[in-house]
């Protein structure tokens, strides 16, 4: 695997951010930890620019919804240090009503569409994003379909009734 161990990476991050990093785990070997939305911009900038860590590649931004949690909406970043061949996963949990988090577009141009997709699915407001609007779904859509409360298919739709098919 990578040239840097997960412990070394975590040690370096906690040296800089201390208590602001919580619940570090390693599910199947990938260093994972949580932080909050006040710190995330500084953390991403630090990870990208630190001469030793060099997490210069933004693999992915996505989100997840846990309706039963106090802070239900989680934004998940996957960063990759191509030089050290180490990955890290960062989670930030947000409140349900109008979840807001600073955009990463000032660090990576590639974050643009990833954040638009996440907004489209979960309605997360990325502050500072140059063009935050829906990308895959139609603009007229009013809901954020990947949240758990929306069923896969509308149970009230009438165009799939049996009599349309001679049954």
């Amino acid at each position: 695997m990578g040239k840097l161990s997960n412990q070394a990476v975590l040690h370096k991050i906690t040296n800089r951010f201390g208590e602001l990093i919580s619940v570090p785990t390693e599910p199947l070997g990938l260093l994972t930890f949580e932080t909050n939305k006040e710190v995330i911009s500084d953390l991403l900038a630090f990870l990208k620019s630190d001469p030793e860590l060099k997490f210069n590649y933004l693999t992915d931004i996505t989100a997840i919804h846990y309706p039963e949690q106090e802070l239900p909406i989680g934004v998940i970043y996957h960063l990759h240090s191509l030089v050290n061949n180490v990955r890290v996963r960062i989670k930030v949990f947000l409140e349900d009503a109008n979840p807001t988090i600073p955009s990463a577009t000032n660090l990576w141009e590639g974050a643009n569409w990833m954040e638009r997709e996440t907004y489209d699915y979960f309605g997360i407001n990325f502050e500072g994003h140059p063009n935050l609007k829906r990308i895959l779904n139609v603009d007229e859509m009013t809901v954020f379909p990947m949240r758990r409360e929306y069923p896969l298919e509308d149970p009230n739709r009438v165009d799939k009734k049996d009599y349309f098919f001679g049954r």
Partner: peptide
């Protein structure tokens, strides 16, 4: 648990 796995697809990192 949670897992991220990627393969080299025709166009790049398919995760």
């Amino acid at each position: 648990t949670e897992v991220y796995h990627c393969v080299e697809g025709g166009n790049g990192e398919l995760g």
